[in-house]
């Protein structure tokens, strides 16, 4: 029996310990917000927080998260109580198909938790594990910058450069 915390709730499971966290969360705990994209840790659609760090959960065996704290997109915010990044995703009309966005937002939230004022290059570095086929990257970056502590400075810079 493997025990861990899922969105603040103590849970346990007796699945095969090699089962990836993604599928335990989706198929056993029925939280469908985290997505399957590649099954090889290459696209980031499955990103969750494990003890606060962004992880690709399609290649993380459930045994590796025993006694750890897992946060999924459902634990980050809800339609009635949005995380600032989720609000920014709406404000900047980030999602297109939307399939990768749970993973994108979880990666962005981990970045801002660790570095509330990231540079453009630091955002690129933190977000490059997450693929978006619809090409929402410019808006993802804009939304992250809007939420970061640098938002005011960024707005001023954009205005100076005539981009806003």
């Amino acid at each position: 029996m493997i025990q861990f915390t899922l969105n603040g709730r103590a849970v346990q499971t007796d699945v095969d310990p090699n089962t990836p966290l993604l599928w335990v969360v989706r198929d056993h705990f029925k939280l469908k917000g985290s997505k399957f994209g590649c099954g090889a840790g290459l696209c980031g659609a499955c990103t969750m927080h494990v003890d606060g760090a962004a992880m690709k959960t399609c290649v993380t065996p459930i045994a590796a998260v025993a006694d750890k704290s897992i946060i999924t997109i459902e634990g980050l915010g809800t339609p009635d109580d949005l995380h600032p990044l989720q609000a920014a995703w709406h404000e900047h009309a980030v999602p297109q198909c939307g399939y990768c966005q749970s993973g994108q937002i979880m990666a962005a939230a981990a970045l801002l938790d660790a570095n509330p004022n990231p540079s453009s290059d630091e955002i690129d570095a933190a977000m490059s594990g997450n693929i978006c086929r619809c090409g929402c990257y410019p808006r993802i970056k804009r939304a992250i910058q809007a939420v970061s502590e640098n938002a005011l400075a960024y707005d001023a810079m954009a205005q100076t450069e005539g981009r806003k």
Partner: peptide
């Protein structure tokens, strides 16, 4: 106008084909 689907897609609540779950469903 903002997108009508942005909040659902930013909160993991938009339902895609892969998210469908019906009783006794097998894979």
């Amino acid at each position: 106008t903002k997108r009508v689907d942005a909040i659902a897609k930013a909160t993991g609540t938009a339902e895609f084909g892969l998210d469908v779950d019906v009783p006794d469903m097998h894979y």
